[in-house]
């Protein structure tokens, strides 16, 4: 029972309270770049969920069973980034071969994900917080869900905002950042859930 409660805490904390984009500033590039339309935003979110969950599992396993026994924990950054780069390539190939429809939906976002700091960030945070493998996977999944929630909301707002009269200098990126800032204020409300 206790472990399930712990996992639920991680789930809520990582997805809502410490939202990956709005409170930790990880994965900002796709958040600002791929949030013009709701459906592409959702696609990006799902692709990221898939990759982060998988990579936190693989990175967790490799950290525990290879790096720690060999006393190589200080190499974690190098190893993790290579694992993630490899994993993304691999996922892309597998999807291309066996799940063409899914590949068509997610394919364009996959190359962008390697350099997404959220993926590496989650792998490193799992180690920093001493999560075990299951906790790490749940944390990865929850983080990605948090990302999906915020990017879809932002995309929805941006679709509406398209017709608004924005001051000349604030057109484009600045108004999106202001929106994100207001969303960050709204999300601090979730800290009451703790």
């Amino acid at each position: 029972m206790k472990t399930i409660a712990e996992l639920l805490t991680i789930l809520v904390t990582s997805s809502l309270i410490n939202n990956v984009v709005l409170s930790q500033f990880l994965g900002l590039c796709p958040f600002l770049g791929v949030s013009k339309k709701t459906d592409t935003a959702l696609g990006m979110g799902l692709a990221l969920t898939f990759v982060i969950t998988l990579s936190s599992a693989v990175c967790g396993l490799i950290y525990k069973f290879i790096l720690i026994p060999l006393d190589l924990a200080y190499l974690q950054t190098i190893v993790f980034i290579l694992i993630i780069a490899m994993l993304v390539q691999f996922v892309e190939m597998v999807l291309k071969k066996y799940m063409v429809s899914l590949y068509k939906a997610l394919g364009v976002y996959l190359p962008l994900i390697t350099t997404n700091c959220a993926v590496l960030g989650v792998a490193l945070l799992n180690v920093q917080n001493d999560y075990n493998i299951v906790q790490g996977i749940v944390n990865g999944f929850a983080t990605a869900i948090g990302f999906t929630i915020s990017i879809v909301i932002l995309a929805g707002i941006r679709e509406k905002m398209y017709y608004n009269d924005v001051p000349e200098s604030f057109k484009g990126m600045p108004i999106v950042l202001i929106t994100a800032g207001l969303m960050a204020i709204a999300f601090t409300g979730f800290s009451g859930l703790r």
Binding site: L22, S23, P167, F170, L177, I178, A180, G181, I185
Partner: peptide, 15 residues
């Protein structure tokens, strides 16, 4: 706080 970062950057880019 986090929101401030977004606002400052927004003003910077607007400038």
């Amino acid at each position: 706080m986090q929101a401030g970062a977004f606002f400052v950057l927004a003003c910077l880019i607007a400038t």
